Amino acid sequence: MKQIQLASPGGLGNLQLVETDKPKPTADQILIKVSSSSLNYHDLLVAQGQIPTEDGRVILSDCAGEVVEIGSAVTKWEVGDIVMSSCYPHWIEGAPEYQLLSFIGDNEDGYSTEYMAISEKSVTRIPNGWTRPEAATLPCAGLTAWRALVDEGRLQSGETVLVQGTGGVSIFALQLAKSMGAKVIATSSSAEKMERLKALGADEVINYKEEPQWGKAVLAKTAGLGVDHVIEVGGGGTFGESVRAAKLGGHIALIGVLSGPAVSQIILPRIFMKQLRMSGIAMANQQSQIAMVEYLDRSSIRPIISDTFDLADIASAFQHQIDNKHFGKISILINND
């Protein structure tokens, strides 16, 4: 079978397409024929070597595929079932614990492979009616947005959500927020992407290059009150404006560091004077993923996939991501039969 492995010390030039043996599931494992994956920012950091990992690591955390073989003790799945990955395959329920937070495609081998043998407990079903490429966008980006807005944010109809940019988490957050009756303000630096955001339901859009202090623009669009929730994916370069944009007693979900990990100015007084609530979000447990799937069963939401690459072209897919040419998710096609 074909598999992408990352040679140390990382870098797109060290992504190697290799031939290797198909794994055999142990008693409590299932064998998944991997149909699709999708790219996340975490995957990019691993591929670039910015998150060090073992030599020969099989990358990618997202997967949707078919169960083609089961171990003798497997009871949850049958051959022919369609499943999707959990980014933390050992975090089934409850609060995070360090020993449960082994990230697949980073701390252990992931899904840039045609077949994967994994514990029957490490996957969930996909939403009813979803294709495998659609389902493969959910385990990281979709679940992150779900936890930010639902588990931690406790989003209510009529509240206002700010999303930053047009990556996978932000687009999912926009779609989820609108489906739950919230108003959405979205930022982007591209006039074309701003139009696409409005077409997806964004109530207001702000060009953050034209308005570097875009937090003030958010206040102007909310009668000076600010937003109830901020989906903060930018990191150090955007955090100050996120604090400015949040309303008194608002919620900021800290998710990404696209603009860097360090905050350039001291803003702690603004945080506690506004009595803001911060949530650090790194995906969620499997029970949260199951709740998301059940919600999507009843929803008309479908992921936005702007580009699809074959597994062998994964370096080009990552470069496409680096160049910020995508809108929503980049899909990786692994088995198309």
Rank of each mutant, 00 (worst) to 15 (best):
S8T: 12
S8H: 11
N14E: 12
N14F: 11
V18M: 11
E19W: 03
Q29P: 12
I30D: 02
L31E: 01
L31Y: 04
S35C: 06
L39F: 15
N40L: 01
G49F: 02
Q50T: 07
I51P: 01
P52A: 11
P52L: 09
G56E: 06
C63G: 04
V67Y: 03
G71N: 05
S72C: 03
S72M: 05
D81L: 06
I82Q: 14
H90M: 14
G94E: 03
E97K: 15
S102T: 09
I104N: 10
D106L: 13
G110E: 05
K121E: 09
S122M: 07
I126P: 02
W130C: 01
R132V: 06
T137E: 05
L138V: 15
P139R: 00
C140G: 07
L149V: 00
G153H: 01
R154H: 12
L155S: 01
S157A: 15
S157W: 00
G158L: 09
E159K: 00
V163Q: 05
A177S: 04
S179G: 02
A182R: 03
A186W: 02
S190T: 10
A191W: 04
E192K: 12
M194N: 10
M194W: 07
M194P: 07
K198L: 05
G201Y: 04
A202W: 10
E204D: 08
K216R: 13
V218N: 07
T222N: 04
A223P: 01
G224T: 03
V227Q: 00
G236M: 08
T238I: 12
F239L: 13
G240V: 13
R244K: 15
S259D: 11
R270P: 02
I271L: 15
M273H: 12
Q275N: 14
Q275P: 00
R277G: 02
R277D: 03
M278T: 03
S279N: 01
I281Q: 01
A282P: 14
A291N: 15
M292T: 09
V293Y: 02
E294R: 14
Y295K: 11
S299V: 13
P303W: 08
I305C: 12
D307R: 13
D313M: 09
A317N: 01
A317L: 05
Q319S: 08
I322M: 13
G328S: 03
K329W: 06
I330C: 03
L333D: 09
